[in-house]
Design a protein around this nucleic acid. Structure first.
Lengths: 168, 168
DNA sequence: GTCCTTGTTTTGAATTACTCAAAATAAGAC
DNA sequence: GTCTTATTTTGAGTAATTCAAAACAAGGAC
């Protein structure tokens, strides 16, 4: 229980550390679970499908449903967090327990973490919440990532994909 | 002609006004489009499916795909806005062009508009955007709506559904 | 170390939300 | 009224995710 730590490099990749965090969450340690956690350390914002592909290289017998199961268990246990940016499949990340947000590239879909704009608990206070008891605020920024900015400037410019924010 | 009562806001419910706004967006005026717009006036945050059901009562021949088509055209034309709160199907609303956000009830899924907490263009400036050129910021609040608060307090309390924010 | 219980994964199928495409239809300019 | 072209219908397909039963294995009991 306790300790949803935020992770120093060692704890994010060392098998024993990974196993410990799984156990600490009250879950059994299994190969697919370790593999998913490791894959998430390598690409911190991944779809189930991407993780499945990654896990498969080490553990060819693993099924996609297993990955979904692992992610559901992890997310329920607070070991991972699930985010669902408009227009993409759900993404999972290991950075949990802090209140951070995300910026998504409207051209290539890349996601980066963004710390709270306004201190620790940000936009958590809408002026008029219509009587709702507010529990959380989730911010998604949309923009063009550095790489795509360059590509656009270089007039490699083809039609920008425009994920689906502005119009569309 | 002359004066229908002042009951519904005129521009959001009057057929001619609806038709005008569709035409103004450069689109042809059709029965399904009018019906969708009207249905949206009645429930301002609706899924395609909900709108389909609503439209069907007046226009039984309408297909679900037509509704999807109408909504895609409207959204591309800036006549409606599409929002996709985690864990639910896409919702559509007619309030566009202003920068407003949403609060979603974690128990029943109800959605309400929320005006910007921090002036007109809010969290639009993350402290560190990792070099992204930020185009938009989207805020989703999660909480318990007044009705559900009462129901929970009344210890009608069954297991709260917990849409899917905190854990799960 | 072996056994047993119970959580986890596999296997196989179903579901939801949504998209695509061709043919039929109808708005609106003429 | 006619014609062009946007829109809708009809019919099918897909991606992401979930459900359920049976096989399997982690970790505590012995």
């Amino acid at each position: 229980m306790t300790s949803t730590e935020v992770s120093p490099p060692e704890t994010t990749h060392r098998p024993e550390a990974l196993a410990d965090s799984i156990r600490a969450a009250g879950l059994r340690v299994t190969a697919p679970r370790l593999a998913v956690l490791l894959a998430l350390a390598e690409s911190p914002h991944s779809t189930a499908d991407r993780l499945f592909a990654s896990v498969r290289t080490d553990l060819p017998g693993t099924s996609l449903q297993a990955v979904y199961g692992v992610l559901a268990a992890f997310t329920a246990a607070g070991l991972t967090r699930k985010i669902e940016p408009s227009g993409s499949a759900a993404l999972f990340e290991r950075r949990v327990g802090d209140n951070h947000h995300h910026i998504v590239c409207t051209r290539c879909g890349t996601v980066r973490d963004v710390d709270c704009a306004v201190g620790a608990a940000p936009c958590l206070t809408p002026e008029d919440a219509s009587g709702f008891a507010v529990q959380a605020a989730e911010v998604t920024y949309w923009g063009v990532c550095p790489t795509c900015q360059v590509e656009l400037a270089t007039t490699l410019s083809s039609a920008p994909l425009l994920l689906n924010k502005g119009a569309r």
